[in-house]
Amino acid sequence: MRKTISSKRGSRRNRIQDIDLNITSMMDIFTILLVFLLKSYSVTEAVLIAPKDVALPTSTSQIDPKVSIDIQISKTSVVFDGKPVVAVIDGKIDRSYYDENNLIAPLLKVIQDKLKSFEYIAQLRQDNAPQVEDTGEEGEEEDETAEKSILVMAHKELDFKVVEDVLYTAAGAGVGKFRFAVQKLGE
């Protein structure tokens, strides 16, 4: 980068001086940053972003996350698929939200609605899919869709009773498998 300035000092004639900006140190910074970022760049099936108000527990698990609908349980609310459903006050969900089966009624409804929409989409895809001979791979994909799993991102300091109630509510809606999002230990 060059900048031209005029200088009259020390000379009768206007002299044009070229000033070179030294960008070597900036290039050094960029190079180090680039190498670091390239090294930490992860190419996985799903990139999870934990909400700011949810501190995930650490775990020795090495299983990579998969894309699925998620429930976030923070110290203030239970969020399903990006929308707050019930409030958490003093580490507890108010008893008024529970139904006679000890499930969280508003959460049960939104999960059931979501699963119904998934089933509808799956049915549409099945109806519109070309008739091809079944292979092992297709069977696996079908199983994965039918599995009805939910990713749970919960604050590590929460009473497990809150998480347990959310799990049982989701199970009541038809969810069969749960994936707890955790922070990999030592990374």
Partner: peptide, 8 residues
């Protein structure tokens, strides 16, 4: 930090 999952 990298995330993982625990199946249950």
């Amino acid at each position: 930090y990298h995330m993982a999952i625990v199946n249950t």
